[in-house]
Design a protein around this nucleic acid. Structure first.
Lengths: 136, 136
DNA sequence: GCTGATCGTCAGTAGTGCTGACTATCTGCT
DNA sequence: AGCAGATAGTCAGCACTACTGACGATCAGC
């Protein structure tokens, strides 16, 4: 049967999740992907673009567009790394930090609601199983 | 943390699965998506394009391209439905059936190998959890 | 027999993700 | 010191997927 196929399940679960989290993030004018970028960049140390790209698992050329978009919305700033002038260190702006905090909040709530069919223990199980598969 | 985010997990698990199953299907000259279409069309009754699209959860305009591709490979045939001439009933060719059988075999094996980190019981759990989320 | 709905098709658009080429810069070796 | 090769970011271009909106052909209900 089709519904046994892992590919089918993953695709449609992801599609549905993207839709639901996208809806609650829309008022903040960020997408789920952009919020993920902010999350990675929101750490204590400013990261170069490729470091952030590696953490996110996206290509470095894709990161250019992502940072472009966030910079256009004044959520991040590119600053040359004084220690290595090939690099841009990407810093969150004040607004970027606000959006990160508020976005994380509504995103977490939307994800929890999306998983309403499962209890807390089952959610942990699901994530743990997926993580183990990913580590091959 | 990023690795707690369901979106991240789903995306990368799916990406990795697509890559792995795609590799074993390549010698048969079909993609995972195309095999899924063959699976849906391989039932006892020939389906119209939109019935198949609904089962797969894809758009009807996307189904046009999928059937085009399969027809180009001589795996399916469009035949007008005598009872409703707006419809195309999509039939598998003899080769289409062979590819479906062989493709299902290697795909199932690749999926099992992809999930090598989990035992049979955990695989059932994972699929069951995803199915329940999908039913909202 | 006409109105409105449905099926398949096509053009156009948008998002994502990659390759390959380029510039600027750094690092290692001699 | 100086050159060769590697690395960071950028950009153009291609490919894949998915959707919207429009269209002609056909069907179903009144």
């Amino acid at each position: 049967m089709l519904h046994d196929r892992l590919g089918y399940l993953l695709k449609h679960v992801q599609l549905s999740l993207t839709e639901q989290t996208g809806a609650v993030l829309a008022p903040l004018d960020v997408t789920g992907r952009e919020l993920a970028v902010l999350t990675v960049l929101g750490g204590p140390e400013a990261l170069a673009q490729q470091q952030a790209a590696a953490k996110l698992g996206v290509d470095r050329t894709t990161m250019v567009d992502l940072v472009d978009a966030l910079q256009g919305k004044q959520l991040v700033e590119r600053r040359p790394d004084p220690a290595d002038r090939r690099r841009n260190l990407v810093h969150l702006t004040e607004r970027g930090r606000q959006v990160l905090v508020e976005g994380s909040r509504v995103h977490a709530r939307a994800e929890r609601e999306f998983l309403a069919a499962l209890d807390e223990d089952e959610i942990r199980q699901l994530k743990s199983l997926l993580q183990r598969v990913l580590k091959e």
